[in-house]
Design a protein around this nucleic acid. Structure first.
Lengths: 350, 350
DNA sequence: TCAAGTAATGCAAACGTTTGCATTTCTGCG
DNA sequence: CGCAGAAATGCAAACGTTTGCATTACTTGA
């Protein structure tokens, strides 16, 4: 009810006839404050309902105990999982996390980077927009030696700490798998090439084809934002004319699911007529029928690594220029029915 | 590269031979600064690479331009969607959002509430833990007239602004639907009753039974955390002995999905032998086969409302004690195959 | 009892803004 | 040219901490 004044350490000091410095140190368990004083101070703090003002402290010692997490969107499975893990881990270490979403807009990303800097966050973790090719808005962080970690969607040619999945291997593995399952004419629906991770998956895709002497046809690769609508449109092109492909490698599961639905509509059987593989191992991939083969990117592990990298960098003294590690999180192909070879044609197994 | 000093408005002032106050006002577009001066100041600011220090400003005028969002977890569909919307909307208005997750732990919730207060956030939106029945840790916010909004999982008997779904109606509607579809022996898997929203769904459930003169049996209601594992265990009890129920109302979709899987395992046909309805209209409910009837809670709308409520409250002068509205977001039953009445038994429709 | 050494406390500046009030500079008009 | 009033600028305090250094209070041993 007392909405008059917020209590400060000054109030505690006055109440106790001590100096503010003593109170401050007592609250922070500074070694040369006597146990008795600490006791008294803390008791009075509780009694007065004192709450530390993080902004004041932050201003004074130039650290906000807050870190920033900047992602395209938080409602998608993959970034959400990473966010969860990073959050929890940093929370344990006494940091707050400001989560921001760029909504895949470059302008928003730039604007948010600036506000986050203004908030004087102690570190920043970023997964960029699909269209970010200029990274200079992050320079302020580098120039001031503020820990900066990129994950998943990471920059090319920008010297910085990176945690990413093995996208080349992912693309390679998926394609090899499809080929092993008997596919000879494979479509790849990729994200835009402005995003390096798709470049690498495409590279893996090409390499696998080459290994098996299958020609790479430009017309069988689509570069687009991986939304449901776009997937649907791509399908209309793909199935506008024969021959139909016998395998599709979709660079995310949303796309894979949309394709599956499209196939159901036009009576193309999966996996008999067409095998589909997605990416990221979204929970929906497991639940849909038939289950969709996908690539697990171990988001929890990636989150852990990001958090560790941040904590690590924050530990180093601000002066020393950062050493920039590049960590690779493994991937694993999760085989499901959508890419199975059916020996005899039963409509429903089990 | 110049990692020496952060530029401040003092630097700008010196460089230009102006006073700090003028510079400050110029940067904030204060009316009685001449256009020419503003121009000069902003140009110099750019030239020096000046970045405002939000903590200093915040300390001075006691507002951080940051709001807090405290939820059980951000990786679940429903809170994630709300978070996304709230985030974007507040971002538009120049606020940062600190998202915190309590992981459904009461202790964490209390701790986080305190750190958020220490960060001097300008407003707080909360969806509580399943087990929060004591809300006194939020008193600080009320006592200091800091906007406080609860959503989805909201307190009972705690005077505060609330945005929630119509859970009573939800429970009622689902149950009526099941009865209309011919169910006579319905199991309800509810969350713990420490959370008022489940209390209301149960009330709706009971009322519908009563309307149709179906007796309410305690043994047919389960109160538990709505995880996959718990759902599985409940199933083992439910199907340990005959008679099996002919309808199950699960209070979330994770549970509904788990039940569906269990049924597949033990060869109970859905919807022929058993009809299932979930809650929240998770994307998975649509994708699984058969599709699961569920209740859409319009999370985007709820997010909008929460954001509006926050902005609204922040507009009011701090002195006036808040008026506490309680908004009800509508619900809608989304009918799918899991509760369909099958006229003749075709295994696959269309 | 006193000096020396250690333990505990206090002083005051600093962090980078904002803002009420005072002061200076301009403008237009008689 | 002088003056009133408006427009633009400056001064200095305040926001709530932390911290280097100075000071005071204790302890101990001779």
């Amino acid at each position: 009810m007392s909405k008059r004044t917020e209590k400060t350490i000054v109030d505690i000091a006055e109440e106790l006839g001590l100096s503010v410095s003593t109170v401050s140190r007592a609250l922070n368990d500074h070694p040369n404050i006597s146990a008795r004083t600490k006791e008294k101070v803390k008791k009075m703090a509780r009694k007065l309902g004192y709450r530390p003002n993080a902004m004041a402290a932050g201003l004074r010692n130039n650290r906000s105990k807050t870190i920033g997490l900047l992602v395209p969107r938080i409602s998608m499975f993959f970034p959400a999982t990473i966010g969860t893990v990073v959050q929890n881990k940093l929370q344990e270490h006494g940091y707050n996390v400001i989560i921001c979403q760029s909504n895949d807009s470059y302008e928003q990303e730039v604007a948010l980077t600036n506000t986050l800097y203004s908030a004087r966050i102690d570190a920043l973790a970023v997964s960029t927009t699909l269209y970010t090719t200029d990274f200079s808005h992050f320079d302020i962080f580098k120039d001031n030696n503020i820990p900066l970690v990129f994950f998943d969607r990471v920059p090319k040619n920008y010297d910085v700490t990176i945690v990413k999945g093995d996208d080349y291997l992912g693309g390679l593995t998926v394609t090899q798998h499809l080929i092993e399952q008997g596919c000879k004419d494979i479509v790849h629906i990729s994200g835009p090439l402005t995003c390096s991770l798709y470049v690498e998956r495409v590279a893996g895709f090409k390499h696998a084809l080459q290994q098996h002497k299958i020609p790479f046809k430009k017309s069988r690769v689509f570069y687009q934002e991986l939304t449901r609508d776009n997937a649907w449109q791509a399908c209309e092109k793909i199935f506008a004319q024969q021959p139909y492909p016998d395998g599709i490698f979709a660079a995310n599961d949303t796309t894979a699911i949309a394709i599956l639905e499209y196939c159901r509509k036009i009576n193309v059987r999966v996996p008999e007529d067409l095998k589909i593989v997605g990416y990221s191992n979204d929970p929906r991939a497991e639940i849909i029928h038939p289950g969709i083969t996908s690539v697990d990117q171990f988001p929890a592990m990636m989150g852990e690594r990001v958090a560790e990298a941040l904590l690590d960098l924050m530990q180093q003294p601000r002066q020393t220029p950062q050493r920039h590690a590049a960590e690779m999180v493994p991937i694993q192909l999760i085989k499901r029915a959508s890419s199975e070879v059916k020996v005899n044609k039963r409509k429903k197994s089990q």
